[in-house]
Structures are given as structure tokens and as C-alpha cells.
Measured scan of single mutants.
Amino acid sequence: MSIQHFRVALIPFFAAFCLPVFAHPETLVKVKDAEDQLGARVGYIELDLNSGKILESFRPEERFPMMSTFKVLLCGAVLSRVDAGQEQLGRRIHYSQNDLVEYSPVTEKHLTDGMTVRELCSAAITMSDNTAANLLLTTIGGPKELTAFLHNMGDHVTRLDRWEPELNEAIPNDERDTTMPAAMATTLRKLLTGELLTLASRQQLIDWMEADKVAGPLLRSALPAGWFIADKSGAGERGSRGIIAALGPDGKPSRIVVIYTTGSQATMDERNRQIAEIGASLIKHW
């Protein structure tokens, strides 16, 4: 067993022997301040990774656009098919120029040779490549099948209805392509620590998230040296922004954090800054 596999296998073990965790309302004060600064709703939840206990939450059962955070769930569904012998990570998928959609920095470079399922998941999570996500959605049967996968996990809230990039439209009061912070946090925890996926697939999923290259201005910008984070960000229309993450000190994750916002007129930089400040408060009061 590799060191990384050992780390993920012992996530519940280490967490069980940690000192009790206590909620700190100071972080919620910052979440509410972010709402004021952005002029928009902000949803927040913080779960203990081992027990699933909610440590703090704000608007945990209000719907927010998922945006690209759905790509972690998508690759979880792909990995479940791999575990069941219905898919192979090494299978190569070929596609054409007509398949390319807006923001496809990886797939646009491989029109000639195609990409493997493993490479597509890596591109979808680490670079948020939209064509990679659409190609992977095709392998599982489309958005409705991802929703069905989530329902089978016990998540009857999260739903995907459309493809990239239309799913980022974020129309107010439109339930399409949305989740709730509580539902997303619980589902992410199941994917990373539950028995739904094999140990190898859980490790692969967290490795992809740990290698995320496009979430630097968010929670990662607030992390002290030595902290662990595996995350996936999302951005959408109407001032929408979000991030889902597993993080913790001492090089291992111990909490799940989900943050979503929508309806702001603020710039992307300002949305990023507010999420980073929430992260800084979380870490300060850990």
C-alpha cells in the first residue's frame, strides 16, 4: 500500500482519535458579512469528516447552483462504474471539434489522439474542462443518470439537468442544476469515506481534487503551510461562485467545507476574496 493510499485508508482512524471539535460562531459572522459585502445569498456548511456531524452552517438547506462543483460527483459516478466493471479508466475516447464547448483548455489539445477516461476526469476536476465533463456525462448516460446515481446514494436534493455550459445559467428560483450545502457536503463525505467506492477509487477521487489547479484564489489562499486540501470550485452566471473541499491540518483532511453564493453584482475577484476570507476565519478558529 502506498503512503497516499495509507493516508486515505486511515482518515477515519486518525479522526477518531482527534480531540473533540467545537464550532466557532466567528466564522458564521464572516459568512454573514460576506453576504453584506456581496449583496447576495451565501450558503455555508462545515462537517466533521469522521462523524458527519454538522459543526457550523448557514442557509444549509437553500438551493444554490452547483456550477462546476458537480464534476466531482460526476467522476465519482464514473469511478463507481469502474468498480462495477462497467468502465475502464484506460479506455480512450475520441471526439471532434464539434464536441468542444466553451472553456476546454485540455480537451482542445487532444482532438487528434483523444483522451482516456482517467485523463478526462483529471481534466474535468483539476482544470474544470467543460468538454471533458460533457464527454464523461455521455459515458454514464447524461445528466439524468448522474441525478439517479445521487438518488441511489441517498441524495434526493442534488440534481443535474443540463450539460456544460448551460448548467451554469443560475436563474433565480430555478431548481435545475442545483444542490443544497448540506446535501453536497453529505454526498461528498460519502464519496470520500464511505463504502460506495473502493479504496482505490476513493484515493483516485481525492487525488484529482488535491491536484486542483484553478481554485488557488479561494480556500487555498488562506491555508497555512502543512495543511491538506482537496477541492473543486465552480463559477456561473449572475454572480455565482462555489467551492467544495476536504481539508485539515497535519497533512490530512478532517472536515468537509461547502460554500456557495449566487445573485451578486460583485466582480469575480471580490467573490473570490470573500470566500478566501471565510476560509481564513475557519482556519483561525479551527
Score class of each variant (00 low, 15 high):
residue 266 A to V: 13
residue 16 A to T: 11
residue 137 L to W: 03
residue 25 P to I: 09
residue 57 S to V: 10
residue 260 Y to W: 02
residue 13 F to V: 11
residue 250 D to R: 14
residue 221 S to W: 09
residue 56 E to Y: 05
residue 166 E to N: 13
residue 236 G to H: 02
residue 272 N to R: 03
residue 106 V to C: 09
residue 40 A to V: 06
residue 28 L to E: 06
residue 56 E to W: 05
residue 172 P to Y: 11
residue 61 E to W: 12
residue 56 E to L: 08
residue 12 P to V: 11
residue 177 D to C: 03
residue 57 S to I: 07
residue 237 E to W: 10
residue 262 T to R: 08
residue 235 A to G: 11
residue 23 A to W: 03
residue 82 V to S: 08
residue 47 L to M: 12
residue 71 K to N: 00
residue 143 P to V: 07
residue 235 A to S: 08
residue 62 E to I: 06
residue 236 G to R: 01
residue 40 A to T: 08
residue 271 R to S: 08
residue 196 L to V: 14
residue 12 P to Q: 10
residue 3 I to S: 14
residue 11 I to K: 05
residue 237 E to P: 14
residue 210 E to F: 10
residue 226 G to P: 07
residue 267 T to F: 07
residue 243 I to K: 00
residue 202 R to L: 05
residue 213 K to V: 11
residue 5 H to D: 09
residue 36 D to S: 13
residue 263 G to I: 04
residue 268 M to Y: 09
residue 78 V to W: 03
residue 115 M to Q: 07
residue 177 D to M: 01
residue 123 A to Y: 04
residue 160 L to H: 06
residue 15 A to M: 15
residue 281 S to K: 14
residue 191 L to E: 03
residue 174 D to V: 04
residue 201 S to P: 03
residue 198 T to G: 12
residue 247 L to E: 02
residue 189 R to V: 09
residue 276 A to C: 12
residue 206 I to P: 01
residue 218 L to M: 10
residue 78 V to Q: 03
residue 202 R to Y: 05
residue 61 E to C: 07
residue 8 V to S: 15
residue 42 V to R: 00
residue 175 E to P: 14
residue 98 N to I: 13
residue 151 H to L: 14
residue 86 Q to L: 13
residue 269 D to F: 11
residue 191 L to P: 00
residue 27 T to A: 06
residue 90 G to C: 09
residue 118 R to A: 15
residue 76 G to N: 01
residue 96 S to D: 12
residue 65 P to L: 03
residue 43 G to F: 00
residue 37 Q to G: 11
residue 95 Y to L: 07
residue 109 K to R: 14
residue 96 S to F: 12
residue 216 G to A: 10
residue 19 L to C: 15
residue 182 A to H: 12
residue 79 L to T: 02
residue 74 L to R: 00
residue 29 V to P: 04
residue 22 F to K: 09
residue 17 F to A: 10
residue 167 L to E: 03
residue 16 A to Q: 12
residue 66 M to C: 07
residue 236 G to K: 01
residue 249 P to F: 04
residue 18 C to G: 10
residue 278 I to E: 00
residue 143 P to L: 04
residue 117 V to G: 02
residue 111 L to K: 08
residue 273 R to I: 10
residue 243 I to L: 10
residue 161 D to G: 03
residue 70 F to W: 08
residue 215 A to K: 05
residue 213 K to P: 04
residue 139 T to P: 03
residue 265 Q to M: 12
residue 150 L to S: 06
residue 154 G to M: 06
residue 55 L to M: 15
residue 93 I to W: 03
residue 14 F to R: 01
residue 194 G to C: 11
residue 118 R to K: 11
residue 52 G to M: 06
residue 193 T to F: 10
residue 175 E to A: 14
residue 208 W to Y: 06
residue 64 F to I: 02
residue 236 G to N: 06
residue 133 A to V: 02
residue 54 I to D: 06
residue 108 E to S: 12
residue 235 A to W: 01
residue 64 F to D: 00
residue 119 E to L: 03
residue 275 I to F: 14
residue 143 P to G: 06
residue 2 S to H: 15
residue 171 I to W: 14
residue 149 F to V: 09
residue 179 T to W: 00
residue 28 L to I: 03
residue 7 R to A: 10
residue 162 R to S: 10
residue 277 E to S: 10
residue 86 Q to I: 12
residue 271 R to E: 05
residue 183 A to D: 07
residue 32 K to C: 10
residue 249 P to T: 07
residue 179 T to R: 00
residue 27 T to M: 06
residue 196 L to Y: 15
residue 284 K to E: 15
residue 181 P to R: 00
residue 35 E to Q: 08
residue 67 M to G: 13
residue 151 H to C: 10
residue 100 L to T: 07
residue 222 A to T: 14
residue 278 I to F: 04
residue 280 A to D: 14
residue 150 L to T: 08
residue 167 L to Q: 04
residue 99 D to Y: 07
residue 225 A to P: 15
residue 182 A to L: 15
residue 28 L to T: 09
residue 75 C to P: 01
residue 143 P to A: 07
residue 115 M to S: 04
residue 13 F to Q: 05
residue 221 S to R: 12
residue 10 L to W: 07
residue 170 A to V: 12
residue 26 E to A: 14
residue 269 D to Q: 12
residue 169 E to F: 12
residue 49 L to V: 13
residue 43 G to W: 00
residue 220 R to C: 03
residue 7 R to L: 08
residue 8 V to F: 14
residue 217 P to E: 10
residue 216 G to D: 08
residue 81 R to Y: 08
residue 235 A to K: 02
residue 188 L to Q: 03
residue 175 E to Q: 14
residue 90 G to N: 13
residue 236 G to Q: 02
residue 215 A to V: 04
residue 234 G to R: 00
residue 72 V to R: 00
residue 226 G to I: 03
residue 218 L to K: 02
residue 233 S to H: 01
residue 111 L to N: 06
residue 154 G to F: 04
residue 254 S to F: 08
residue 193 T to P: 01
residue 24 H to P: 06
residue 70 F to G: 07
residue 141 G to F: 04
residue 59 R to N: 09
residue 14 F to P: 02
residue 61 E to H: 14
residue 197 L to R: 05
residue 67 M to K: 01
residue 238 R to K: 13
residue 186 T to P: 08
residue 98 N to C: 07
residue 67 M to N: 12
residue 164 E to H: 01
residue 181 P to M: 02
residue 138 T to N: 15
residue 34 A to F: 09
residue 54 I to H: 12
residue 240 S to E: 09
residue 109 K to W: 09
residue 181 P to I: 04
residue 80 S to A: 11
residue 212 D to L: 02
residue 226 G to E: 10
residue 122 S to A: 14
residue 267 T to E: 11
residue 179 T to N: 00
residue 136 L to Y: 00
residue 97 Q to M: 15
residue 171 I to A: 15
residue 7 R to E: 08
residue 50 N to Y: 13
residue 80 S to P: 01
residue 48 D to H: 07
residue 219 L to D: 04
residue 128 S to L: 00
residue 171 I to S: 14
residue 4 Q to N: 15
residue 243 I to E: 03
residue 191 L to W: 05
residue 244 I to W: 00
residue 33 D to Y: 14
residue 56 E to N: 11
residue 1 M to F: 02
residue 10 L to G: 08
residue 156 H to T: 13
residue 53 K to N: 14
residue 209 M to F: 03
residue 229 I to V: 10
residue 15 A to K: 04
residue 66 M to W: 01
residue 122 S to Y: 14
residue 103 Y to L: 04
residue 201 S to Y: 05
residue 40 A to Q: 09
residue 97 Q to L: 14
residue 201 S to C: 07
residue 40 A to E: 05
residue 144 K to R: 14
residue 100 L to H: 04
residue 43 G to I: 00
residue 106 V to P: 01
residue 274 Q to A: 13
residue 32 K to T: 09
residue 61 E to D: 15
residue 48 D to V: 05
residue 262 T to G: 05
residue 234 G to K: 00
residue 103 Y to K: 02
residue 265 Q to L: 14
residue 30 K to Y: 06
residue 125 I to N: 03
residue 228 F to R: 07
residue 113 D to T: 14
residue 117 V to W: 01
residue 97 Q to F: 15
residue 275 I to W: 02
residue 57 S to K: 12
residue 27 T to H: 06
residue 206 I to H: 07
residue 243 I to Q: 03
residue 277 E to Q: 11
residue 17 F to N: 08
residue 168 N to Y: 03
residue 151 H to W: 15
residue 2 S to Y: 12
residue 189 R to T: 09
residue 50 N to K: 12
residue 4 Q to A: 12
residue 261 T to A: 09
residue 274 Q to D: 04
residue 39 G to P: 05
residue 211 A to E: 14
residue 137 L to P: 00
residue 178 T to N: 03
residue 28 L to P: 05
residue 251 G to N: 15
residue 117 V to F: 04
residue 67 M to C: 13
residue 94 H to T: 14
residue 29 V to S: 10
residue 280 A to K: 15
residue 4 Q to V: 08
